[in-house]
Amino acid sequence: MSRRTSSRGSSRREAMVGNVPIRSLPKVSLHDHLDGGLRASTVFELAQELDVPLPADNPRALGEWFAESASKGTLEEYLDTFHLTLAVMQTADNLTRIAREFVEDLANDGVIYGEVRWAPELHTDGGLTMAEAVQAVQDGIEEGEDAADEAGHAIRVSQILTAMRQANRSLEVAKLAVDFREDGVVGFDLAGPEQGFPVSRHAEALSYLAGEFFPVSLHAGEAEGPESIRDALITGRALRIGHGVRIAEDLETIETEDDEVRVRFGDLARWVRDREIPLELSPSSNLQTGATAAWGASLEDHPFDLLYQLGFCVTVNTDNRLMSRTTLTRELSQLVETFEYDLDDLEQFQLNAAAATFLPVELREELIDLITEGFNR
């Protein structure tokens, strides 16, 4: 795709593409964790109420602590920061509040549809059952949708229930997801440490979901390479790949005699590209966790643009807004600055995401129409 001149957005001023504020554009968020999307001020307030020790003495400093602690270069160290957010997410009231604020923050960022993923099994220390936790989150989502609507911003948010790869409750979580399929839950996920905990450990749960025709998006290709993605597709029947950035390891760059550069596809990469299997790329998070270390340490080294130019179905996501101190607007702005994308490129990313949602086809088509209309304006 040809590149056109784009104004370079600034994190200190309104991020722009051309003369259009990126925040004003309709967006779709596919990969956004509830326990990574809290406001630092909310964590600070709730932790004080619960006497949870804090590493900072004010909300701003706490936000800086999350970002710095999550930027150590490995997924394991990135995940260590979640002990603090999880500590304040063990009651129905807190879960409802956090989910409501989560939706409000998405709406303020121009998101018109989002899928929030989280692991109910990590929210039972205060005595909640997993089903009670799911209902508390759903209550908060609906409150957030109503508040956004009153403020003039229509938004819909669905839940994706996550099971932890290192635990043994995936079948229980899978059945819970199916039980709530008419009450806000649209998908299932596996998250947590990727190395040493393959998708195949959860074959029973994933077979159950396949039998129920229930959509699956699995974390893969983040801390491990192409074999993890292969496992997600074959064992997990995944319809989307959470991150999936390391699919680029199945591509080989070849210089020809006339100094042209060509790319040779491995079988897996060609399958993912040709079948248009969506990749839930999260640029800032990928840099923090070291998922892109094989290519470099800056955004310009991220294989996002390579995958996009080669025709992969790329989508742009935040992963964990608190840990990455980011928003979808900021992620898109950084891509515009780095790769000189224009309005057409940003629209394509949103259309990819809209088509990849776990909504019924009629609602996906409505979402695509809303995006097209919004970008045309």
Rank of each mutant, 00 (worst) to 15 (best):
D57G: 04
R237Y: 10
E340W: 08
E143A: 15
A293P: 04
A294E: 12
A151D: 10
Q135G: 10
D183T: 15
A191Y: 02
V17I: 06
E252I: 08
V199S: 13
S7D: 01
E172S: 14
A291H: 11
A99E: 03
P360L: 07
M323Q: 15
E64R: 14
V245T: 05
G290K: 06
A356R: 03
A167C: 13
A119G: 09
T372E: 10
E222A: 13
Q159M: 15
D259Y: 15
H243V: 01
E365L: 11
S207R: 12
T318I: 11
L79R: 09
S2Q: 03
F66D: 00
C313L: 15
S7F: 05
S71G: 07
Y78D: 02
P360H: 08
M89S: 07
R275T: 05
Q350C: 15
F82Q: 03
E104D: 08
D342V: 02
W118D: 00
A61Q: 13
S41Q: 01
R3L: 14
H202I: 00
G73R: 09
V314C: 11
A354K: 01
M16E: 05
Q90H: 11
D32G: 02
D32M: 03
V216L: 05
A177R: 05
S10N: 07
V137Y: 02
L351R: 08
L75P: 05
E365F: 07
R169S: 04
L79A: 03
V272W: 03
H202W: 00
N58C: 14
I247C: 12
I247A: 10
D139K: 11
H243E: 04
A191G: 02
I160G: 15
A56E: 07
D125C: 08
M16N: 08
R330F: 09
A232S: 09
S333H: 06
A119L: 05
D179P: 02
L106Q: 11
A297P: 00
P59L: 12
E64P: 00
L268E: 10
W271T: 12
R39W: 06
E172F: 09
T357F: 02
Y341C: 08
L268S: 11
D179S: 13
E194K: 12
S285M: 10
T85I: 02
M16K: 08
E68C: 09
E64K: 14
S2F: 01
R4E: 07
V186L: 12
T42S: 11
V186Q: 14
P226A: 15
L307H: 08
A353C: 11
P53L: 15
D57V: 10
G187Y: 13
S7P: 01
G242Y: 09
L209H: 10
I155T: 13
L38S: 07
I254D: 01
V314H: 00
V52L: 11
L268R: 12
Q195V: 00
P193R: 14
P21D: 07
G152F: 13
P303D: 04
E276I: 01
P21W: 12
I229P: 00
M89Q: 09
G110N: 10
L25V: 04
T129C: 13
L176Q: 11
L335A: 09
A356I: 09
A67R: 12
